[in-house]
Simulated scan of single mutants.
Amino acid sequence: MYSVPRSTDSDCSTQGLQTYQDVKEYYGKCLKNSKDLKTNACVAPSRQLPKHIRDALKDVHEDVSARYYGCGLVVPECLETCSILDLGSGSGRDCYMLSKLVGQKGHVTGIDMTDEQVEVSKKYIGYHMQKFGFQPANVDFVEGYIENLHAVQIKDKSYDVIISNCVINLSPDKRAVLKEAYRVLKDGGEMYFSDVYSNKPVSEELKKNKILWGECLSGALCWKELVQISEEIGFSPPRLVTSSFITVDNKELEEILSDYSFVSATYRLFKLPQGKAKEKWQVIYNGGITGCEEELQFDANFTFKEGEVVKVDEELGAILKNSRFADEFLFRPCEKGDLSSKCQPKQEIIRDPFQLAQKARNQHQAPNSGSCCGPKGCC
């Protein structure tokens, strides 16, 4: 059983409750597969996919993949034996792919509020477990709201990783989603998610457009709001991974959107232990993470090559040292007053997804074969 999220200032109104019904209707009944989308709003280029991820995706049943709507591929690194929660799991495509990657000792839970989608995802548990050779099953699905994980008995500090793929923009209460994610993450845990962001706060009038909300645009956060909300809740500052401009090819919707711009971006948030001192480090990637044996592209700002010494600031140092990545690096302290190049700031940190998307556009970087979206979109 599940219940409507507890009343909050932002979602207890009639408009907030109506949003849930509109989204359920859109994704449960209006959309039968990704070809039914009216815009390409959620098409997002992804990095070239490692072979182990491509192989895992190939093993997902075609009926599950056909009802997949997402704006990126949310597969962080170093997942073996991890417990993962997928917020807005839909048909279960990402869950099944991740269930293979975490292995028999890991576990994946998907939660979605649309009963038609949950029904599809549950239908193929046996198929995938037989395909992967896992017994007992290492994946399960629950019907519920991502704003209220309490209602489906998800406990504090119970997951290593949380993922979400183009879903938070559909929620009328983003703060509640992030607050619940923080609660159920273990110390050192990560929230790794793709979503849509606007260049400025979306007007109340635009938020009432059901099609634009269902197509993941009018419910988007301004990226600066994400930074503010996540840090207020307790996460470390968001680390930008990828970003791409969204193109709306529908003339009518384009006129309605006027001077709004949107990007599809992937961020990673970490829940770090409280009270631990932060310091600068020289770090050396040991290599060997599956799919990143020689190079780990951690975010848009830092790529670690095996055996190479890289200076990181207090923020990134705390993330690497207190997360599942700790055993993947060697750490050397930067002494106070050290003026060597290895302990000096390396580069400007890009947090603005529009800046990163523009940089990619300027460099003529086109979407590559790593894109995981359908022909018209995959939101």
Rank of each mutant, 00 (worst) to 15 (best):
K100Q: 14
V139C: 09
G126Q: 13
R183I: 08
N138G: 03
K200L: 09
G133L: 08
G103Q: 09
S83I: 03
M191L: 15
G88Q: 02
D195F: 00
V161F: 07
Q130K: 15
H107W: 09
V120R: 05
N138P: 01
Q153A: 15
I168F: 02
V108T: 03
I125N: 06
I168H: 01
I168S: 05
R183S: 08
M97L: 15
T114N: 13
V196C: 11
G144A: 14
V161E: 06
N165R: 01
S158A: 15
D173I: 04
N169K: 00
E190H: 05
F141N: 10
D187A: 12
S171N: 13
V118G: 13
Y197A: 09
S171Y: 04
F134K: 11
L170H: 09
V184D: 04
K157H: 14
I84R: 06
K100N: 12
G144M: 06
M191W: 00
D140V: 07
G103V: 05
L87R: 09
L98I: 08
S194Q: 03
K179A: 14
C82G: 01
M113K: 13
N148Q: 14
G88R: 01
K122P: 11
R93C: 10
T109V: 15
K179D: 10
K208C: 05
L178D: 02
L212Q: 07
Y197H: 09
I154N: 10
V202H: 05
Q130A: 13
G110Y: 03
K155Y: 12
I211H: 02
C166V: 03
G90E: 02
W213D: 02
A137I: 02
L206K: 02
K155G: 14
S194G: 15
G188C: 03
T114R: 04
K179H: 06
L85Q: 08
S121Y: 04
V120P: 04
G189Y: 06
D156V: 07
L185A: 00
D160W: 06
S83V: 02
Q104H: 13
Y182F: 15
P136C: 09
K174C: 08
L87G: 09
W213I: 11
P172Q: 12
P172S: 13
G106R: 07
I211E: 05
S198M: 11
Q153L: 14
T81E: 13
N169W: 00
L98T: 07
K131P: 00
D173F: 04
R183M: 11
G133I: 03
K157I: 06
C95D: 12
V152S: 08
E80F: 04
E116P: 01
Q117L: 15
D115I: 07
K179G: 03
